[in-house]
Lab assay of single mutants.
Amino acid sequence: LQLFIKTLTGKTFTVEMEPSDTIENLKAKIQDKEGIPPDQQRLIFAGKQLEDGRTLSDYNIQKESTLHLVL
């Protein structure tokens, strides 16, 4: 599923993930694309901070959802 990642600077980029992927996987993918170390990434969806060990489906993140990346 394609997700939109929006940064505080207003930049938006996309990543391609599976619902079974963990937040950790997502942070690694963001590191590949943007060079931001996972330990500096905080991801927010629907007002909640996402925890590394959980999956996208745990948070009911669907295709074309927008996640906010806070550094």
Rank of each mutant, 00 (worst) to 15 (best):
L26Q: 00
L26Y: 00
T7S: 07
I44M: 12
I36E: 02
K63H: 14
M17T: 12
K63L: 07
M17D: 01
L3A: 02
Q49N: 07
I44E: 08
P19N: 12
E16L: 14
E51W: 04
S20N: 15
P37N: 09
S65M: 08
L50D: 00
T22K: 12
K11T: 09
A46Y: 08
P38R: 13
I36Q: 03
K27I: 02
S20K: 07
V70Y: 13
I44D: 04
L1G: 06
Q40A: 13
T66Y: 08
E24C: 05
D21V: 03
R54S: 09
T14Q: 10
K29E: 06
S57V: 07
P38L: 14
M17F: 09
Y59F: 03
T14I: 14
K27E: 01
A28L: 13
K48M: 10
F45R: 03
T12I: 09
T22V: 06
S57H: 07
L1Q: 05
T9D: 12
E18C: 05
F13I: 07
K63A: 11
L26R: 00
Q62I: 14
F4P: 02
E64R: 15
F45I: 04
T7F: 13
L8D: 14
S57P: 03
Q49K: 10
I30H: 00
G10W: 04
L69H: 01
L56K: 00
L1E: 04
E18N: 08
T12E: 09
K48W: 08
S20Q: 08
D21H: 12
L26F: 02
L67W: 02
T22D: 03
L69T: 01
L71F: 10
I30E: 00
I61D: 02
E34H: 15
P38Y: 10
K29R: 08
E64H: 15
T14S: 15
D39V: 07
L3W: 01
K27V: 02
K33M: 14
L26P: 00
Y59C: 03
S65I: 05
T12D: 09
A28E: 08
E51K: 06
F45P: 00
I5M: 02
I5S: 00
A28F: 13
K11G: 08
V15T: 03
A28V: 13
D39Y: 07
L3D: 00
K6T: 08
T12P: 05
F45K: 02
N60T: 04
T12G: 07
L69F: 03
G35E: 04
Q31P: 01
V15I: 13
D52Y: 05
Y59A: 03
I36H: 11
Q2G: 06
N60E: 10
Q2A: 11
E34I: 11
G53N: 13
Q31E: 08
T12H: 11
I61R: 02
L43T: 01
G53M: 14
E24T: 12
E34L: 10
E64Y: 10
L71P: 10
Q41V: 08
Q49P: 11
G47W: 05
A46Q: 08
E51P: 02
